[in-house]
Design a binder for these strands. Structure first.
Lengths: 229, 229
DNA sequence: CGTTGTCTTGAATTACATCAAGAAAAGTGG
DNA sequence: CCACTTTTCTTGATGTAATTCAAGACAACG
């Protein structure tokens, strides 16, 4: 799924990298509005990006999976507009914010990749926006599960029998889609009854991804390559 | 509102710039999924970014105003994930997609600005997402009008008596917020009756921006500087 | 001056939220 | 390992915000 990593790239990134870090479930990687000195690439584990609204509600922006780059906003804008929290134990590759500028000075290709990633996020958020704005609960949930599962496939986290770990709560999914917990639960029950998607005990089972995609109105989009930072 | 433009920056950007362009209302600046060779900075006029969903619905991503940079996605990813359409006559500063890479090679500061813009868009989309997911019609509409008006203030498009041009249809606002036209209309009528916001004949009148902000649950966020490309 | 697009308003319907309460899990401590 | 508490999941009943349907009033336009 990722662009190839040349020997030179590796050297450059190794200079940029300052270490590895392991955090436990529930750890706050970023706090909303805070000034943080570090950026991360997710090597293993899953997490949540979310915003807290003025009246105390929570909007989950998306689900964080291995390969994701965290903190680009803080890296260029100084502070994060959303929080990031670990849902499982996570292994992270750590970079210094101060080095971002150095990348731009010394390695245009990597700088370009950063912009690419930002544009990619924008694209994904746009998708989410149109799903939230224009569709009903069943479509939202089917779409979301489809997206998660496709991504898991891309990073090889899906087992032979079409199962992957999904260590979130139903409340998290509800908050991602702007639905109530109750309605989310009932819709998941329907998908389960129909044999389209079964999510129990932190495991998501999708026997037929295309069928789920139809319910979620997913247009068979190419799996896009993304740069790995 | 914009970062200062040094003499050197000006020279660099003038080399990058390939011309100016004026388009009429209704013109399609970008088509969804298309490969376009040009990028634009909006000098005057307003427009819409939108996506069309699989089942034919339309989600307006945001409203385009002077100072916006259009086509960054196409610039780095090759194709746009959304369409852009002019709502009024628009004046655009034209750049070549091929030159984007040159920017990264020769002018790290400008390259950084591009990434900054992308991160900014991501931030704005995240805001929109949480508004769509977590709030009711009144809050959505108040929030949206607040955002538009604040932006208009920043680019000095608001008259003495707190009016600015808003050349969109109610349907556009409805599609931006995931509401039906009817409900949008009724909510606007309520705002008008309460004297908070009056939008008629393409003119938006906001006597008291703070009052609107309260209704829209807007936390008094600093007006952020953005780079002008 | 008819035709078409946008706005406006009322009435009927529905998808979803809220309320409530029980059943599983998953921690916690003795 | 077993009570005990707390969290997460599940299901039914009730309420409501927003949709859809329908139709009239303005505007804009050729």
């Amino acid at each position: 799924m990722f662009d190839e990593f040349s020997a030179e790239d590796l050297t450059v990134m190794q200079a940029f990298k300052t270490g590895e870090m392991v955090v436990g479930p529930g750890a706050q990687l970023f706090v909303e509005g805070a000034h943080t000195p570090q950026l991360y690439t997710v090597l293993a584990g899953m997490g949540l990006r979310y915003k807290t609204t003025a009246d105390g509600q929570r909007q989950v922006i998306n689900f964080v999976m291995p390969g994701d780059f965290l903190g680009l906003q803080a890296g260029v804008m100084g502070e994060m507009s959303h929080a990031v929290e670990a849902a499982t134990e996570m292994t992270l590759c750590v970079f210094n914010r101060a080095d971002v500028w150095r990348i731009f000075k010394t390695n245009p290709q990597r700088a370009f990749d950063l912009t690419y990633l930002a544009a990619m996020e924008e694209h994904l958020l746009g998708d989410a926006l149109s799903r939230l704005g224009q569709h009903g609960a069943m479509e939202k949930i089917a779409w979301s599960l489809h997206r998660i599962f496709s991504r898991a496939l891309a990073v090889d986290m899906v087992s032979e029998d079409n199962r992957c770990a999904l260590p979130f709560k139903q409340q998290d999914l509800a908050d991602a889609l702007g639905l109530s917990l109750v309605h989310t639960n009932k819709t998941l029950a329907k998908l389960r009854a129909d044999g389209v998607a079964t999510w129990t005990a932190g495991q998501l089972h999708i026997p037929d991804l295309d069928r789920l995609g139809e319910l979620g109105l997913v247009d068979k989009e190419k799996v896009e390559k993304r740069p790995l930072i």
